[in-house]
Each structure stands twice: as C-alpha cells, then as structure tokens.
C-alpha cells in the first residue's frame, strides 16, 4: 500500500485527551469524533486537514487513556497513517484494530508541516524532501492480524467457522 499526502506535525506525548477530549466520549459517531480531533491543541485541524494527509509526531503518541474514540477520530478525518518516533501501547493496539496504520520512524526533525510525503506501508519506506527513511517493521503478529482484516473480522470468521 502506497500512501501519499501532506504532513501535519504534532510534537511529543500527544495524549488521547488532545486527540479527542473526554467531553465528547459519550459520542460513538465517527463523524462527530472527527470534528473534535486535536481540538485542545489545534481547533482548526478537522476543518483544514484533507483525506489522505498524514500525521507525523515525536515520542509516545497516543499516551493516556484506552479510548478507542482516539483512532476513530483520526480515521474519521480520512487520515490513513500516523508516523511517530514511538507510540503508547494501548493506542498502538487500538489503531490497528480500527484500521489506522502506524509506523515507528524518527522523521520528526526531517520534515515540515505541509511537506509532501510518500510512504510504502508494507516495506516501511518513507520518502520526504529528498530523504529516504526506513520505518521499524510492523511486528509479524500485527501484519497477520491486518491480513486477516483486523481483530473483529478475525473474530467474525472464527465465530462463523
């Protein structure tokens, strides 16, 4: 899968209260969650971001709560991928479970907001501003899960089988 889009940069420790503040957690509609994504830091983000754009962040992206509303809010805006130096562990699982791809790579200082980026998710090759960086491979178990169509599809098959 090749992804091309514009970069939105967010720093270190982007927590789930930033990704989607708790006051919206009574909602389960992805559209509503998307409208408030990143609100405390960048209230205009949901209006300005375009489907296909990619988030680039520093360390510990997604730290904080286990709310799956966080990856749902991001995917609701059409963002297919987050690239960060490291991810918080619950968010990491949730993202893959919700069809949001994550790559661990240290490109934060190499890129600027609005830069075009080109990513081969399968190989982890990231091209941006003349640089080529290889992301840490997605753990084989995750790849298997993605190939099964995510945890819920895997479970569905299991129940039907």
């Amino acid at each position: 899968m090749i992804l091309q889009g514009k970069i939105w940069k967010f720093g270190d420790n982007i927590d789930t209260d930033i990704i989607i503040p708790a006051k919206y957690l009574a909602h389960t509609d992805p559209k509503v969650l998307g409208e408030h994504c990143m609100e405390p830091l960048a209230p205009d983000f949901p209006k300005k971001v375009k489907a296909g754009d990619i988030i680039v962040s520093g360390t510990n992206f997604g730290c904080g709560s286990s709310r799956e509303h966080a990856p749902i809010a991001i995917t609701a805006l059409g963002i297919p991928l987050v690239i960060a130096k490291t991810f918080a562990r619950i968010f990491y699982r949730n993202a893959f479970n919700k069809g949001l791809a994550l790559l661990e790579a240290d490109i934060y200082d190499l890129v600027h907001d609005g830069d075009e980026i080109d990513v081969d998710v399968a190989t982890g090759i990231i091209r941006c501003g003349g640089n080529e960086v290889k992301a840490k491979p997605i753990p084989p178990f995750m790849v298997e899960l993605i190939n099964e169509g995510g945890l819920i599809n895997y479970l569905k098959k299991k129940l039907e089988g």
């Binding site: 286990s66 709310r67 619950i90 949730n94 479970n97 919700k98 995510g150 819920i152």
Partner: peptide, 17 residues
C-alpha cells in the same frame, strides 16, 4: 488496559493476545 475492540474479543472468547 485495552481498547473496546480487544475487550469485545475478550468478552466473546475469554482470551487475549
């Protein structure tokens, strides 16, 4: 802690990876 999807899997199968 896990997300809601992992929890659903656990609720149904009694297991987690």
């Amino acid at each position: 802690g896990v997300g809601s999807t992992d929890l659903t899997y656990g609720m149904v199968t009694g297991r987690i990876w």
